[in-house]
Design a binder for these strands. Sequence first.
DNA 1: ATTTGGTATGACCAACTGGTCATGTCCCAG
DNA 2: CTGGGACATGACCAGTTGGTCATACCAAAT
Lengths: 216, 216
Amino acid sequence: MSQEPARPTFSHLPADKQARVLNAALAEFADQGYHQASLNRLVARAGIAKGSLYQYFPNKEGIFRHIFQLALKLVRQTLVEVKETTAQEDFFTRLEKSLQAGVRFLQTHPRIYSLYLKIQFDRQTPCRQEFLATVRRHAGEYFGSLISRARTRGELRPGISEPAALFLLDAVFDRFLQAAAVPALDVTFNLHQAPEEIIQRRIRELIDLLREGLAA
Amino acid sequence: MSQEPARPTFSHLPADKQARVLNAALAEFADQGYHQASLNRLVARAGIAKGSLYQYFPNKEGIFRHIFQLALKLVRQTLVEVKETTAQEDFFTRLEKSLQAGVRFLQTHPRIYSLYLKIQFDRQTPCRQEFLATVRRHAGEYFGSLISRARTRGELRPGISEPAALFLLDAVFDRFLQAAAVPALDVTFNLHQAPEEIIQRRIRELIDLLREGLAA
DNA sequence: ATTTGGTATGACCAACTGGTCATGTCCCAG
DNA sequence: CTGGGACATGACCAGTTGGTCATACCAAAT
């Protein structure tokens, strides 16, 4: 499918040097996006020579694919973990804990989330299709399994359209995280860099609304 | 606040030439974003010389501000129009018609919507703050007025958190439009370039879900 | 002491960027 | 016929980009 993005030389490197390079790369791609990312800045941040970078990776896209695969692994891990640790709860508690986990992820890996957003909205980023497909598939499976178990337990209104429910959850959760991560995005929630306590209250309000609906 | 982005020379131009330049600019910015947009490509598309461009506008940012103001005007217009033409309907019908109007806008002005997305997620675009604030303000006022009238009419569940409802609507609507405009974004709705009929059905399903909630 | 293989380095390259400007064209007033 | 102002033009500029490469370094093996 796609050749190894990193050269063997890179894996022989002392761990701290690898880390420096990966950190610099993640930082650069996360806050500039693929095309605006500058390899000159990257090597400056990492404290290595330009030539060295090309001993580690075949080209810019190779660097990108590498850090993108690391990011993907982390996301997968997190999703699996949340799914397992909330397996015993009822549907709406699971939703609440999932959103909380999302916020935690975003706070501990802000650059990875930023990278994710960059990829999502720059149609020309390499691997975009592959990346989005993977993430959406995981999200879909995640919400899907929550929903289908909730349905067999009778926690859902009967006759609900499953695709619609999936879409709704995906939309609301994604937007919630976006609003927490990106300034000037949400109308009234003011989630960006809001204190933990407010975020928790907002999460509960939202889940309530999803559960009970808007109508009288 | 900010000087006129277009030079007088530009307004003296024959209308079709103006249109050619504006079209080329919108196209370039919409599918490349601000920084990746190339003025060389732009002038090639418009069929004018590089130098001419700088007789019309002071610099790249000036061009951007100009087309961005045109876009803003169009969005404002559309919102006002929808608000007025649905004034007589009940809350959930208004929601439905609003979403339909959004989809129509996106179909008739795909490049403007694309530009909007680019601005939303590229933190470094000029005028970003100003632009987002304006759009969000309009969206907020729009949904806000819908909600508060619905409340006085008793169409809403009492005790609903208004900010939460606003956030929910904004999130779902925006994501719906995004999914319709950008490939590979939604999990299961497959809205991208879907036929009119499917889109209408999805809208109805979503509004239903918002109205009645998820819980049994 | 010499050779060898992996790694480090930064000057260098072509391609492109946003932006400038001397020159040219054209039309209209004198 | 002459002059002047508005507009057109593309060669040109300095700066940056992703990428290359001859050279240098340094350990271990001979």
